[in-house]
Computed example of a mutant assay.
Amino acid sequence: MDVRHNVHPEDAKHYTTQELRNRFLIQELFVKNEVKMVYSHIDRMITGGVYPVEPVVLQAGANMGVDYFLERREIGIINVGNAGSVVVDGVKYDLNTTDGLYIGMGSKEVSFSSADAKQPAKFYFNSAPAHKTYPTVKIEKSNITPNHLGSINQSNERNIYKYIHPEGVKSCQVVMGMTVLEPGNMWNSMPCHTHDRRMEVYFYFNLPEDAIVFHYMGEPTETRHVVIKNEEAILSPSWSIHSGVGTHCYTFIWGMAGENQTFDDMDHVDIKTLK
């Protein structure tokens, strides 16, 4: 398990490009028959990926200090690959592409598999500490009514799908969903914002191999950018903006944890003040 420590905004101002990437960018999430995880000390969020050509079991790392992964945690999972399944304490949940699953605290045995080993599933997940057990729930994207926002004139026409949130699938901390940009649109989360009460992780996918996203981060008056490729994620501390523009349209999964679960609790940044 890769462990990332907190970064003070005053320190981040002086980072080189490589230092920014080392602290915040998450690469190579999908390795055959492994659970790849990054443990962030920002709200104790774990970001991970599973690429099960053969069945793979979710296990606690030594850094967690528990007997099993969900002993004191919850997890949100979205399948970004081909059809697969997650087995939770003997109960099987089949997930097609972009279907999700929430698993509550206390589930002991979690394993991942693909419906066809030649066309494997890819399970992306966010996990945060929990204080209460909520039921395990399968989330089908086809059953979610999206919020349609933006416009082609601003290059940000998009559909927002909320998977785990207070008005839907309940959780302790994790709030999770997916934003799908319409063809011809490249911007996300601009005008931008921060939310001092929550951290966030963005995972970019459905991006052609020859395309990139310029992800903007940093304090509003000290912005930096990180170049991101398909199926890479980036950590966003509460003091940082999180916005991006691609050379092609794309989809991204957002996951949050922290003080509250209020989706609209944002500290909006006047675009004129960005530097």
Rank of each mutant, 00 (worst) to 15 (best):
G258T: 08
N79F: 00
L207A: 02
T223M: 14
H14L: 11
A60T: 03
H215I: 03
N230M: 05
W239C: 00
Q173A: 15
A60S: 08
S111L: 11
D2I: 15
T221Y: 12
N33C: 02
P183R: 15
N33L: 06
I212T: 10
H215L: 08
W187P: 01
E259V: 13
H14S: 12
Y68L: 03
C192F: 10
V53R: 13
D196A: 10
G258P: 00
T98A: 11
V31W: 09
I241M: 06
N159W: 14
I212H: 13
S111F: 08
N185D: 11
G104N: 00
V56W: 02
M256R: 12
S238D: 15
H14M: 10
Y163V: 05
I164M: 04
G49W: 01
K32P: 15
G184E: 08
V213L: 09
I77Q: 05
E157V: 15
A128Q: 09
I46K: 03
V66H: 01
R44W: 14
L58W: 00
I152S: 13
D67A: 04
P9A: 03
N159P: 10
S243N: 04
K122Y: 14
T16L: 13
G258M: 09
M64H: 12
R158G: 05
P129S: 04
H268M: 13
M176I: 10
G61K: 07
V31L: 14
T251E: 11
P135K: 04
A257L: 02
N63C: 03
N156C: 07
D196R: 13
D89T: 04
K170W: 09
R224H: 12
M217W: 07
N6E: 15
N159D: 13
G177M: 08
N188C: 10
V175D: 06
E34A: 05
S171M: 10
P129H: 07
M37D: 03
M266D: 11
M176G: 09
V245Y: 08
I164Q: 08
N188G: 08
D196L: 12
D116F: 09
